[in-house]
């Protein structure tokens, strides 16, 4: 397998076209565009209720150029398992079956079918595009919403920290698991290439900021995704058969304060809480990088 080394090598075909219904500066649409560049036309994509299920159109028009199925909220990995079984029985081998869910379709509402598919070692790729809130229904807090983030149902800031979804998925011992970020497209596309070359249950978790939910400007989507990596809150690594390899070491480290203060949702966070988070991030950064 030849990994993409430069952006000039990436195919020009758009399998998720422009004209879709996403907001300006949509991080989710950006993640799909980058991933579809390498997933290619032999892909069946299956998306449960989420922004991404709606912005690609429905019924009369669509932005997808690959088969796209909009499943119910709780069952994307189960539907993908069924699609794979139907392909297997027809003897079709060269198709990527992808269940592409938001953080709610992965960590909360979709979790039972996800853990089931991972346990059965279904031959699918599950992608979580994580904007840290339920943005399709107005930005409610979910289990991966960060500590102290203001949402419509945590108006004083979320009282509990974010669930460690990567640790939960790593406990299923998948053959491939990776984190990615829309700010590092080459890294993201290489991870999809590696995932496609492996058989079995593969899990990719992409941080895809949402300007509405995060309280940032629409042109800051990529900037904030990069700052999440630079401050150490979101680390880019992959695990092949449980062996971890850090894929991007940020060129500069920034304090988490810089990242948090740019976002409207953390305006209630006091200095003591930021310092606690900084200590936690430093500890976690050393743990992953070593």
């Amino acid at each position: 397998m030849e990994l993409i080394k430069t952006l000039a090598e990436v195919p020009e075909d758009e399998l998720f076209t422009g004209g879709h219904g996403g907001c300006r500066g949509c991080g989710a649409a950006l993640a799909v565009r980058q991933a579809m560049k390498v997933l290619g036309p032999r892909t069946i994509i299956n998306i449960p209720a989420s922004c991404m299920a709606t912005i690609g159109g429905s019924g009369l028009t669509t932005a997808w150029k690959v088969p796209f199925y909009h499943s119910l909220f709780e069952c994307a990995p189960a539907v993908a398992s069924g699609i794979r079984a139907a392909l297997d029985i027809q003897g079709i081998k060269d198709v990527n079956v992808v269940s592409w869910a938001g953080d709610a379709g992965t960590a909360d509402i979709g979790f039972q079918s996800l853990t089931g598919a991972a346990e059965r070692q279904e031959n699918i790729i599950h992608v979580c595009y994580d904007n840290e809130t339920y943005m399709n229904t107005g930005g409610q807090a979910g289990s991966v919403t960060p500590y102290q983030a203001i949402t419509p149902d945590t108006p004083a800031g979320k009282p509990t920290p974010r669930k460690d979804m990567l640790a939960i998925m790593a406990a299923h011992h998948p053959p491939y698991l990776a984190t990615a970020s829309v700010a590092y497209p080459l890294d993201l596309m290489q991870k999809f290439q590696k995932a496609m070359a492996i058989q079995g249950f593969r899990y990719i978790h992409i941080l895809a900021p949402c300007f509405r939910g995060w309280g940032i400007r629409e042109d800051q989507t990529v900037q904030l995704a990069r700052m999440a990596v630079e401050c150490g809150l979101w680390q880019l690594y992959e695990e092949v058969d449980g062996r971890r390899r850090v894929t991007v070491v940020p060129e500069r480290r920034i304090p988490v304060r810089e990242y948090l203060r740019l976002q409207g949702r953390f305006k209630n966070m006091d200095e003591a809480a930021i310092q606690d988070l900084q200590d936690e991030v430093d500890r976690r950064f050393r743990e992953v990088q070593s």
């Binding site: 004209g19 669509t62 932005a63 690959v66």
Partner: peptide, 14 residues
């Protein structure tokens, strides 16, 4: 019936 591939691009008027 399902939509033809990529039809949202044809009607785009941002």
């Amino acid at each position: 019936p399902s939509a033809r591939p990529g039809t949202m691009a044809a009607g785009a008027a941002m």
